[in-house]
Structures are given as structure tokens and as C-alpha cells.
């Protein structure tokens, strides 16, 4: 009885949700006239290139206009890693080796992963360094690098990650992001203001857009380190024997 009631209620909620979303026409132009500027979307499309010298408008929105949100999202990831570390921590007895849940994989997988890993890492780095020019950016690049590490973790049962290095990368990248933000305050502007460099450079140059590429590179490092850390924590728990 309870189950049917729940399904019935869900259907009602679903019906109204679909109705509400149906009123949004599919594929229609929601931005409006670019010169009108009544929506923020139109403003971004019109002003991003002249005001920030960033070719990729999405990057400008993510890192500059709404950089505060991005800082928050990076923190969410950081806190998730921290929380996982504290919940899943297991006291190791003296001399006990860390063990992974995965089994040893075949020679083919091992060699193949080793061959692929540098290229995956290179692609990830390329994606986040060119975040302000081409599609992609810090989050995407970082995730690509983390998949490379996942491949290594899967292939090699005893693949060791330098935890100290991960912590350093994570913290330094975070400090860079928050520090650039505070630098804006110190120099008399607002938090995260794009004023650290005198000029913004030319559109489509690798060095352009002021602090935007620097923040995205920091985000890339941070995301890569954090996702790798999460994978490592999750893979190296031994299931309870008793």
C-alpha cells in the first residue's frame, strides 16, 4: 500500500516537473539579442573577448565572472578527499604493507598502461594549459590525468603514489587560487580581480587573459591530485576479514 502511494506521488511530481520543463522551448535562443544585455549570457558573449582577452567564453565565465563558484567547487573536492581520508583511515600495524583490493593484472595490461600513461598525462596537461583558448580546462585536464593514474593503479598491484607529493600539489594549487583572489584585495581591487598583470595580452595567445590561465592550471593540478588521491584511498582498503 505504502509502495503504491509512493509511486503515485512520484508520478504526480514527475508530471508537474515535465510540464514545467516543457515550457522551456527546446533549442530556442534563450540568450536573446546580444546587444540587448538583459540576460547575463548576452553580456558575457558580447564583452568577454574585449574585456578579458580570453578566446573561450566558457572559461572566462567559469574562472573569472563566476570564479568564486569555481573556488567553492574546488574546495568541495578538497573536502571530499579530506573527509574520505578521515573516515576510511585504518591504523596500520607496524610493518604491515598497504594492500589493494585489486588482483595482479596480466603482462599485456601492464606494458600497455605504461606505454599509454605519458600520453594521457600529456593530453591532460595540454587540455588545462590551453583552457582559455580551446574547449576544456582545469577540471577536464585534471580528470584526464587522474584516469592515467587509475590505469596505473589497476595495472600494477603495488603501484606507489607519493602521498607527500600529492599533499604538496593539492595545497600549493589551492593556495595559488585563493592567493590570487586575496592578491586582488590587497592591491585595492576586489576578490579574484583580474589585475595581477598590467596587460591582458592578445586574444588567442598562449599568454593572455591575465590570471585566468594561471588559475586554470592550478585547478588542473589540484583536480588531478585530488581525484588520484580519492582513487588511491578507495582502492587501498582491505576488506574486513572477520
Amino acid at each position: 500500500m505504502k509502495k503504491y502511494l509512493a509511486i503515485f506521488l512520484l508520478l504526480i511530481v514527475g508530471f508537474y516537473l515535465i510540464q514545467a520543463f516543457n515550457l522551456v522551448p527546446f533549442g530556442a535562443n534563450r540568450v536573446g539579442n546580444i546587444d540587448d544585455e538583459s540576460t547575463v549570457g548576452a553580456y558575457y558573449l558580447k564583452n568577454t573577448v574585449p574585456k578579458t582577452s580570453v578566446a573561450n567564453v566558457v572559461t572566462a565565465i567559469v574562472v573569472n565572472y563566476r570564479g568564486f563558484d569555481t573556488l567553492g567547487e574546488v574546495t568541495v573536492l578538497f573536502l571530499a578527499t579530506t573527509g574520505l581520508g578521515s573516515i576510511l583511515f585504518r591504523k596500520r600495524k607496524h610493518g604491515e604493507e598497504e594492500e589493494r583490493v585489486l588482483k595482479e593484472s596480466s603482462q599485456l595490461v601492464k606494458i600497455g598502461s605504461r606505454l599509454l600513461f605519458p600520453f594521457i598525462a600529456l593530453l591532460g596537461i595540454y587540455v588545462f594549459i590551453h583552457g582559455h583558448l580551446t574547449p576544456g580546462g582545469g577540471f577536464q585536464g585534471g580528470a584526464i590525468i587522474a584516469t592515467g593514474f587509475l590505469l596505473m593503479l589497476v595495472a600494477y598491484k603495488n603501484y606507489k603514489l607519493g602521498h607527500g607529493a600529492l599533499t604538496w600539489i593539492e595545497s600549493l594549487a589551492g593556495i595559488t587560487f585563493a592567493g590570487i583572489g586575496i592578491w586582488g584585495l590587497i592591491t585595492g581591487g576586489t576578490f579574484l580581480e583580474n589585475n595581477a598583470f598590467p596587460g591582458l595580452g592578445n586574444v588567442n595567445d598562449l599568454i593572455s587573459g591575465g590570471v585566468i590561465p594561471i588559475i586554470y592550471i592550478a585547478v588542473g593540478f589540484k583536480v588531478a591530485a585530488e581525484l588520484t588521491g580519492v582513487l588511491d584511498i578507495l582502492l587501498s582498503i582491505k576488506p574486513n576479514k572477520n
Binding site: 574546495t75 599533499t167 593556495i175 585563493a178 592567493g179 586575496i182 584585495l185 576578490f191
Partner: peptide
């Protein structure tokens, strides 16, 4: 630096990122 509302967010965030290094 004039104290403004963003300090509520910026300072704890900076501290949270720095703490793992201080722990060393």
C-alpha cells in the same frame, strides 16, 4: 586591506588549503 564580507570565505579557504602543509 579593508575588512569586507569576502574575508568570511577567503580566509578560511586559504587556511584550509594551507593546513595540510602546516601539519608537516
Amino acid at each position: 586591506m579593508v575588512i569586507s564580507p569576502v574575508h568570511y570565505i577567503a580566509v578560511p579557504l586559504l587556511a584550509a588549503f594551507t593546513i595540510p602543509l602546516f601539519a608537516k
